[in-house]
Nucleic acid binder design. Structure first.
Lengths: 165, 165
DNA sequence: ACACCTCGCTTGCCTCAAGAAAGTGATCTG
DNA sequence: CAGATCACTTTCTTGAGGCAAGCGAGGTGT
């Protein structure tokens, strides 16, 4: 008797998606990964997630094929980085449709501001999650920036298996 | 110290969306609600969810403003129905982007088949979650059918506050 | 050489939710 | 009046979340 139901065998694709994405930490981690975060400490600091949960989630995401663990010799010590796979990068429309929905239907916290999804290829804001509403091209992670005014920086996303974040 | 973090105050809209949608039952319930399911027993039979969890989730969804409880005098007894609000109907792009992702990146179970998203207004399949890839119009729940071949029926969705499901 | 730090985990503890099953009460049916 | 249906509520066990501490490998400072 599992605590959490197993939805991997459901006919409906929404159910199967939730078998992987039904955990909110998973979604936040993938958002961060597409924002160029790669290392354990980066995720931890960004999310305020506990060590134990982060470790479990990263392992699970590698097992699910959304992240790939790569060796990394940054400063001489062998560390490793977690890089989105193609399946992970394809979560972009899901993340953006969540963002669009929340912009419309949840309340901005104090000091918040509208986040714009910028298609860098054409330079304009898109109001669609998967196809640029300005130029009509399909949106790819490495061609997007999320303009977060409260951060005074436009965050360029990075796609699958890119290391120069 | 809550068991589940509170993300309602986050700057990033993805976090705020997950504060409501971070529970997989919530997403499945809203999918069913947009498929025209309205009553406690309908959700229960469709999802195999336990009474206790279903009751809690429905209460929560009403509190979150995704469902509205309406009186219903179907057969003389006073029952009530749970109907999607406008915010609930606006989850359509999220559900569809989940479905599109899973069609591409999860394995079909035995006897499964491709589910097509049909824009009934133009009669064609869309490959975008929020804007019809065939005719370019924004997708609205009550204009969509999900063609589930394993069910031998095309399921017409229903939008907000519609009772004739 | 030795103390100390950083990073990526792991372990232990406590609380609280998930899930299964049974109970409840209001209303209808035979 | 016995039984069924519906929408919950209650009880119970299991296990995940969050916090804090520990740990081990590989730095750095003096």
């Amino acid at each position: 008797m599992p605590l959490r139901s197993d939805w991997s065998e459901l006919m409906c694709p929404v159910g199967r998606a939730l078998d992987v994405l039904g955990d909110p930490w998973v979604v936040l981690l993938m958002r961060d990964a597409l924002h160029g975060r790669r290392r354990f400490e980066e995720f931890k600091e960004s999310l305020g997630i506990s060590d134990a949960v982060l470790s479990r989630r990263l392992t699970g995401l590698v097992a699910s094929g959304l992240l790939e663990q790569q060796p990394f010799e940054g400063d001489g010590r062998a560390r490793h980085v977690y890089v989105p796979t193609a399946a992970g990068a394809d979560l972009l429309p899901i993340l953006q449709s969540l963002a669009i929905w929340a912009e419309k239907h949840t309340e901005l916290p104090d000091g918040g501001a509208h986040m714009a999804l910028i298609h860098e290829t054409c330079g304009r804001e898109t109001t669609s999650a998967d196809t640029c509403s300005a130029c009509g091209e399909p949106l790819r992670a490495e061609e997007m920036s999320w303009d977060k005014p409260w951060k005074a920086e436009r965050v360029r996303l990075s796609g699958a298996t890119t290391l120069e974040a």
